[in-house]
Nucleic acid binder design. Structure first.
Lengths: 221, 221
DNA sequence: TTTTGCATTTTTGAATGCAAAATTCGCCAT
DNA sequence: ATGGCGAATTTTGCATTCAAAAATGCAAAA
């Protein structure tokens, strides 16, 4: 197994919450499970620690990182900045075909909204945001975006929404698509920031920080 | 020696250009120099690879990453986004004392400009940009900023400037300080982006990508 | 019963050893 | 001289091993 694969698999385990935030990471167990020895595992853990997903405690092993309310605020702020930038760049560089694809994804997402299918709605939602970042055509930006969004993914795409908030989010997405189609970078940037600000308020108000005994996975259902 | 220290020391070696971009990283040699064995060294290299400073080639070792013109463009774009965000947040959160400190740093920098001391000018310049990011009060943002700016530091703070460009940069810095003092987030954000856009154009026009045989260190003097 | 001190066990962090891959060098044919 | 092929050498990647630190368990004392 390649180094990057080891990193990816552990990342997936952490993001799925299989090892919940704050829990110790059992080296021996993970080694057996992945069929590797401790050396490559520990290399991967150090990389994930640099990413912020893992916390290393000298001589006391590693734990899945736990996000405080402050961390959440900081990450959402940065995410806003990155998406705003992506929106502007995307408007300069996006192709008609890419716009069409996003329009289709948007339509599908609205369908899921009409069906009241939050899981599928969130899936489509995420695809749209990622497509915009991809359309920005900046791999460095895409990389940072991936890493930052990974850390807030569960909060962002798991929070239950009130009907009002959901309706607002859909409206905002109409505006996002609209700005994209008009290639209005400043406008898109502005809407994306508002959109994410609202999402952040939702998440923080819902008390979704990964504090003791706040198991997000339980709320997915 | 602690893991983070190993990472830092290798990072410094790379940023100083002691191992120039594109050059192979000699594991054995570095081990002796740092007085550690290959295991912790390789852990550090993998972390630096995730940061983008090192390139890992499977079964062929690691090299100091080399930046193409495209990489440079991407990094500057992201840097613009991060500084713009930092500027806005800083205007919301900066204290009067912090503004005074930046004003003092600005005055000192202008003195170095008058003296024609580019090295000292760049040093002060960097301190101001970093102070703004710090004043944003967002550790996640600060971390990303540090990592992104590290990669373009040599290009950014080594490029020789024409008198016209230098004068323009100083003017822009006047505007930056002004916006900060007025706590005009949108204005500061706008100026910072223009400022960095100009710097990027300078760097790219000067052909400062880290391509074959383009040794930046030679030009520092 | 609770707490303190100590010995044992477990886990971490790093060095070493080993197999596989790649590079280098030498040899031979042209 | 030069170009290609194969063996020797080096280097990589990982498993194993070893020393040190921390956690655990237990007994004795308060």
């Amino acid at each position: 197994m390649l180094h990057e694969d080891v990193v990816s698999r552990i990342r997936a385990i952490l993001l799925d919450g299989e090892i919940p935030p704050g829990a110790r990471i059992p080296e021996r167990e993970l080694c057996e499970r992945l069929g590797i020895s401790r050396t490559p595992l520990r290399e991967a853990l150090k990389v994930l620690a640099a990413e912020g997903l893992v916390q290393l405690l000298p001589h006391r092993g590693s734990r899945a990182a736990k996000l405080t309310d402050n961390d959440m605020r900081d990450l959402f702020e940065v995410c806003q900045g990155l998406e705003a930038l992506a929106g502007e760049l995307a408007c300069e560089r996006i192709t008609d075909a890419e716009i069409d694809a996003i329009a289709a994804a948007h339509a599908a997402m609205v369908e899921h909204y009409r069906d009241g299918d939050l899981i599928q709605y969130y899936r489509g939602n995420r695809a749209i945001h990622e497509a915009i970042v991809t359309a920005a055509g900046n791999p460095v930006l895409a990389g940072l975006y991936t890493s930052v969004t990974a850390r807030i993914r569960r909060a962002r795409y798991v929070t239950p929404m009130t009907p009002q908030r959901w309706a607002l989010a859909v409206k905002e997405h109409e505006a996002i698509l609209n700005a994209l189609q008009r290639r209005d970078g400043a406008g898109l940037s502005h809407i994306l920031r508002a959109h994410l600000r609202h999402k952040r308020e939702e998440v923080l108000q819902a008390g979704f920080a990964e504090t003791e005994g706040n198991d997000l996975t339980l709320r997915i259902a």
